[in-house]
């Protein structure tokens, strides 16, 4: 069970580590904050509670930069 992660011009294939693995779980695993990104699942905007499915393309768009 794999999905494609697109973030900051990088595209990579990742294993879905557990059942009901959400975009929020992914954001946490990447060490990011849900406050700094918006999420797309298969090119559609979704909320972070969305469960990632086999074959999904998940795109995280960074909208807030530090400073």
């Amino acid at each position: 069970m794999v999905f494609t992660l697109k973030y900051n011009n990088v595209s990579e294939s990742r294993e879905i580590p557990q059942e009901y693995y959400t975009i929020k779980d992914l954001i946490m695993d990447l060490g990011l904050s849900t406050q700094t990104v918006v999420s797309k699942q298969n090119d559609e905007l979704v909320i972070e509670d969305t469960v990632i499915n086999d074959g999904d393309e998940i795109k995280l768009i960074q909208i807030i930069y530090g400073g």
Binding site: Q35, V38, L45, I61, I63, I64
Partner: peptide, 8 residues
Amino acid sequence: HEIGLYVV
């Protein structure tokens, strides 16, 4: 965050 979501 909502402004970021708005433009996207």
